[in-house]
Design a protein around this nucleic acid. Structure first.
Lengths: 152, 152
DNA sequence: CACGATTAGTGGTATATGCCACTAAATCAG
DNA sequence: CTGATTTAGTGGCATATACCACTAATCGTG
């Protein structure tokens, strides 16, 4: 296969998305870093805070992440005392998650830093463009890419 | 801090980007899976193929990824015999990377699958919208977010 | 009520990625 | 040329994230 016969790399939607995610992730991480949290952790604490003692499955669903991945991601936050879990008394299969007071403090601290990053992003790309981008990303997150089944 | 006093999660550009990346990554992964490669690996093989025996640093730079992360990511591909490395004779610090014949075969196989995912994506979101999105993502990748230094 | 199916999480394993400390090689100043 | 500095990668460690096999709890049905 000659190099020219291959479609351009810049054309891969997934590659472009990952590349931008690495770039932006590093930026948010750097800004939030003084809190000791990664941007992903800050986002997860925030998600937990906004929910009403959400079940792990609910968090995973809304973040579109694997349940087991969420479990792993939660571990350092539990270890550091920012988050605690407890079984739902109505259904003991369900494990609910909440912030500890320490976790809430840490979230507040991180959110201040987050706002700097967020503001800076909006300044650089423009408020409208940022809004459009988020809308496009949310749309992707909501889409159904299932290949149409080979009608039997 | 009351929940209402916190800015909406859906407003975080970084969180939206990661969420979309998980979603789209899984989709591309699923489609490319029959080749035994992850979408990231396919993209990396492609990048290597398109370069002229690129140096690791060059690959890392164009993918906007950490050099050491690239080194780690390359390991399974080397282990599986898809990729090989060699020292640049002009500068022995530099390590160059190329596909093996086996790697090229595998890339061709994976590219066929990739095209299915890519096509499906364009069908679902629309060709123009996909193009706009990639442009926006590439722009983010190219931006300079450095906070203006506190002019001393 | 008992049994099979479904649901929610866990733990292990593997890749993806980043940071840091360290080494080797090249480069530059004196 | 030699010592200081910069550059390119490596290896270890930590988080992010996915899949799989497995367990426990619940549900549905006869």
């Amino acid at each position: 296969m000659s190099k020219d016969s291959l479609p351009g790399l810049t054309l891969c939607n997934n590659a472009a998305l990952r590349r931008a995610a690495r770039k932006l992730g590093k930026f948010y991480d750097d800004v939030v870093e003084p809190s000791g949290l990664k941007a992903t952790q800050q986002g997860l604490l925030y998600q937990i805070h906004m929910g009403d003692e959400p079940a792990m499955g609910a968090i995973a669903t809304s973040l579109i992440m694997d349940l087991s991945a969420l479990g792993h991601t939660l571990k350092p936050l539990i270890r550091d005392g920012y988050v605690e879990t407890f079984a739902d008394p109505e259904d003991r299969r369900v494990k609910r998650v909440r912030l500890t007071p320490k976790g809430l403090d840490k979230l507040e601290e991180a959110m201040k830093l987050w706002q700097i990053a967020q503001q800076r992003f909006e300044d650089v790309v423009g408020k409208d463009k940022a809004e459009d981008l988020r809308a496009a990303l949310d749309e992707i997150a909501a889409l159904d890419f299932d290949l149409p089944p080979a009608t039997p």
